[in-house]
């Protein structure tokens, strides 16, 4: 069931996920389309997340946006005190930057750069309300990188543990989400979440829009029509439905890009998610050595595989 509507306010709206914004040409959503999108969200009881470009919107847009309860996703360059989610693209910013404090921060980075910026990640963990790391080159993750990524996750786990011992538990998507989840909690594109693009059409998620504008799943006149919508649901994903890497983003766009099917994750996505899951397991065990922690939550079981596909086919 749909619960969220993402509205891209401009073609240059910031990316907060795996996809790249592949245009520098500004195109604001038509004001009437914005109003119609908001009206539809109200009728359908959808929570809106507005995604902003790096420039200030005209006053009439701000007035329309103010008519509905919502969340704002903005690039650091355009962030304000009211910004809910702030996106950082790469590492050309300073950890003392204003507004990092007590915000949800999304960092988009290559794996190589992430591994080289562990110190900055550690600082962000201590400052931000929540840190979401989005690795933008999942498709190039090789089995040779497993060891180094695993080691990095271990170091970050030690940092989270240190912060916990000092009285704060940071939220970090790669390590703490799996500790507190009791079931799958994925992106939800095409299932619980839909995107309204600046051209007034609906897409499974922003990535589908940027990849191919012809790939829409409805518009503001005819409504949302998702063919084969069952394939976006967990029950129809044979690899994922029995998996317990519950923190996995399960990115349906990456799925389609890598395997040609929205319901089938790539080997790379599965292995990365399982390394994070296993690091979460270690972290949970280590934190519990300091005393009771999440007593209602069971331990994360030890497993002997990194790709659940191997279990299905062996």
């Amino acid at each position: 069931m749909l619960q969220y509507m993402i509205i891209l306010l401009d073609d240059t709206s910031t990316s907060f996920c795996h996809y790249d914004v592949n245009t520098a040409k500004k195109r604001l959503i038509n004001l009437d389309d914005l109003r119609a999108g908001i009206r539809m969200a109200m009728i359908e009881n959808l929570t809106i997340q507005f995604v902003y470009p790096d420039y200030d919107l005209p006053q009439e847009y701000r007035d329309v946006i103010r008519t509905i309860d919502h969340s704002d996703i903005k690039p650091l360059t355009n962030a304000t005190q009211e910004t809910d989610v702030m996106t950082l693209d790469g590492w050309s910013w300073h950890v003392e930057t204003q507004y990092l404090e007590s915000r949800i921060v999304v960092i988009r980075t290559s794996l190589h750069d992430l591994l080289a910026h562990g110190d900055e990640v550690a600082v962000l963990l201590s400052k931000a309300q929540r840190l979401n790391v989005v690795i933008t080159d999942v498709e190039r993750f090789s089995d040779d990188q497993q060891v180094i990524y695993n080691e990095w996750l271990g170091k970050m786990g030690q940092e989270v543990e240190r912060l916990y011992v000092n009285g704060t538990l940071p939220q970090f998507n790669l390590l703490t989400d799996r500790m507190i989840l009791m079931t799958m909690n994925n992106c939800g594109a095409g299932n619980s979440c839909i995107t309204l693009a600046p051209n007034g059409k609906f897409y499974i998620c922003p990535a589908f829009y940027y990849e191919n504008h012809e790939d829409s799943v409805g518009d503001l006149v005819n409504g949302i029509i998702i063919p084969n919508n069952q394939l976006y649901k967990l029950d129809n994903a044979p690899i994922c439905r029995n998996c317990d890497s519950w923190q996995c983003k399960r990115c349906v766009w990456l799925n389609r890009k890598m395997t040609l099917e929205v319901n089938t994750p790539s080997h790379e996505q599965c292995v990365m998610a399982h390394l994070e899951r296993n690091a979460s397991r270690d972290l949970l065990l280590n934190i519990r050595k300091h005393g009771a922690f999440l007593p209602e939550t069971p331990d994360i079981p030890k497993i002997d595989y990194l790709d659940p596909f191997d279990n299905i086919n062996n």
Partner: peptide, 15 residues
Amino acid sequence: DKNKLRPFLTLDRLT
């Protein structure tokens, strides 16, 4: 490209 075989090798009747 083994990724492109994954949907075929996990396909079942019900799904």
